[in-house]
Write a protein that binds this DNA or RNA. Structure first.
Lengths: 128, 128
DNA sequence: TATAGTAGGTACCTAGAGGAAAGTGACTAT
DNA sequence: ATAGTCACTTTCCTCTAGGTACCTACTATA
């Protein structure tokens, strides 16, 4: 049995095996979830179109998908008002709010170290 | 001019506009980078095959790609020893080490809140 | 009459990431 | 002579996330 066979045997769900924080990363930092959570966090309760306009380039299909996912994970609360035209509001849940210090931590790291990454990239690109 | 045209006009590079931490998320939490950084962080300096075996399901092609990216971003240091057979060692840089408290913070959140996400998912799935 | 606003749903399609498998080069051990 | 080690590289192929465009139902407005 070759290496490839062994690798294929345990495939599909895998990075989690090596690293206990992969699950959280998948939940919180998958594509589009960060801008959505951030917008909800800084501007409070909002309607679908407000989110759409603030994020700017997201398509309604993807926004719906990501909001459903965040709602299922308990990070976002969706409130439907059966009016005409329909009104739906999204807000961060308490569980979602527990991510705030983590986001602040990330913003701190960004402020203090992001330019070092930029410099490293320039150095790497110029030496080759 | 329809909505779609306006949306397409500013497309391509975008989530960063709405959210100041998107750049960091792209650098640190893109696919495979978290397990790589975590393995390097917990097991110290390692060779290519050790990383490959510890992560388990990553292919050499992707591992090379991600390591190059992490090296370019200054998070990982690569040391090449021109021997036969060749020996290459990878370790976390000082910049990469500055992520340690952030990773600890993530592990904390995971330990205290991951089961709440699980419960929210079960609740959501059973009520539909 | 027709258009806009609201919160999506649905069908189709493409680009690109990632996986599988084989190759490379230089040397060693059997 | 063959196989193995290491750190990749290359080629091919698949899969799916995401984009485009169009659809719903209902009302207010021009």
């Amino acid at each position: 049995m070759g290496m490839e066979t062994m690798r294929a045997a345990s495939a599909a769900t895998a990075p989690e095996l090596a690293c206990p924080i992969s699950a959280v990363v998948d939940i919180v930092f998958s594509r589009w979830t960060t801008p959505i959570l951030w917008t909800l966090h800084t501007h409070g309760r909002q309607r679908f179109v407000e989110l759409e306009r603030r994020i700017g380039t997201i398509t309604p299909k993807v926004l719906t998908q990501r909001l459903r996912q965040l709602e299922r994970d308990g990070l976002v609360v969706r409130t439907y008002h059966p009016e005409v035209p329909p009104r739906v509001e999204y807000e961060i849940s308490e569980l979602g709010r527990s991510l705030a210090p983590l986001f602040a931590h990330l913003a701190d790291w960004s402020a203090t170290h992001l330019d070092e990454v930029e410099q490293a990239r320039h150095a790497y690109d110029s030496e080759s």
